Simulated scan of single mutants.
Amino acid sequence: MAENHYQAVVTAPGFALGVQCDEDEITGIEFLEPRPEVAPTTPLAAEAVRQLQAWLADPKFVFGLPLKPAGTTFQRRVWEQIASIPLGRTLTYGDVARTLNNAPRAVGQACGANPYPVVVPCHRVVATGGGLGGFNRERGGFLLDVKRWLLRHEGHPIGSTPD
């Protein structure tokens, strides 16, 4: 997403979240390198900021944002499975794949295409054997640090260990 397309930017420890929306629905949330907050430009962006800040303060917060339908039928099925993973728990890419009668790689690709990270908690899907796996289509660096923080924030021990 281009910088000027964010209707708000929320700061978090070590990263930021760019919010994109129209008047009625959230159209995307993107992980960003740390940067200053950007005040919401629409009422829905203000509500997204409120909810993201509430979750940052308390990972038990439950989101209630209107998300614009996106993705393929398969991606939406993966995102539904991810959304059902309880706070503080993880599933492996293989676990999700078995539920959907598909391949772990396809699940990983669907996770990487998730337009609503944090709200649809793709960070709760990890590699077999206890590693983090990839995150947001990346295999290392900044985004894996974000995934570690997200898991630690939610009380999952995998967020405290290296890959």
Score class of each variant (00 low, 15 high):
Q75G: 05
P115F: 07
V120R: 02
G88L: 09
R105A: 12
T72L: 01
R98S: 07
T90P: 11
N101Q: 14
T90C: 13
T92R: 10
C122I: 13
Q75D: 14
P117I: 15
L87T: 11
R76C: 05
Y116G: 10
V118A: 01
A83W: 03
V120G: 02
N101K: 10
A113F: 01
C111Q: 12
R77W: 00
A83G: 04
T90G: 12
L91D: 07
A83E: 01
R89A: 11
G94S: 11
Y116L: 07
A110N: 04
I82V: 00
V107N: 03
P121Y: 14
G108A: 03
V78S: 09
V118K: 00
A113G: 02
N101D: 07
P86S: 15
V119L: 08
Y116D: 02
S84E: 12
R76P: 03
C111T: 09
L100A: 01
W79E: 05
V78T: 08
V96D: 13
V118C: 01
V125L: 13
P115Y: 15
V107M: 03
R89D: 07
W79H: 05
T99S: 09
T90K: 15
Q75S: 09
N102P: 00
L91I: 11
R89H: 14
R105K: 09
Y93W: 07
R77M: 00
V125M: 06
T99M: 12
R98W: 05
H123R: 14
T92C: 10
R98C: 04
C122H: 10
V125F: 13
C122A: 15
R76F: 02
P86N: 14
Q81D: 06
A106P: 09
R124Y: 10
R77P: 00
T72H: 01
Y93P: 05
A97S: 01
T90Q: 11
V107G: 04
A103R: 03
N101C: 05
R76V: 06
P117A: 15
P121W: 15
G88N: 10
G112E: 14
C111H: 10
E80P: 01
Q75Y: 07
Q75C: 06
G88E: 11
V125A: 08
Y93T: 09
A97L: 02
W79Q: 10
A97Y: 00
R105S: 08
R124F: 09
V120D: 01
P104C: 13
I82M: 00
V119I: 13
G112H: 10
L100Y: 00
T73M: 05
V78G: 04
P121M: 15
T73K: 06
V118G: 01
I82C: 00
T73L: 05
A110T: 04
R77H: 00
R77K: 04
T73Q: 04
P104G: 08
G94M: 03
F74R: 09
V78A: 09
R77Q: 01
Q109G: 07
S84A: 14
D95S: 07
C122W: 11
T72R: 02
S84H: 12
V125Y: 13
L87Q: 13
P121S: 15
P115T: 15
G88W: 14
H123A: 14
Q75W: 04
S84D: 08
W79A: 09
A113I: 01
Q109D: 12
R124Q: 10
G108P: 03
R98Y: 05
T72I: 01
F74S: 05
L91W: 11
P117R: 15
H123K: 15
S84F: 04
G108R: 06
S84Y: 03
R98Q: 06
A103D: 02
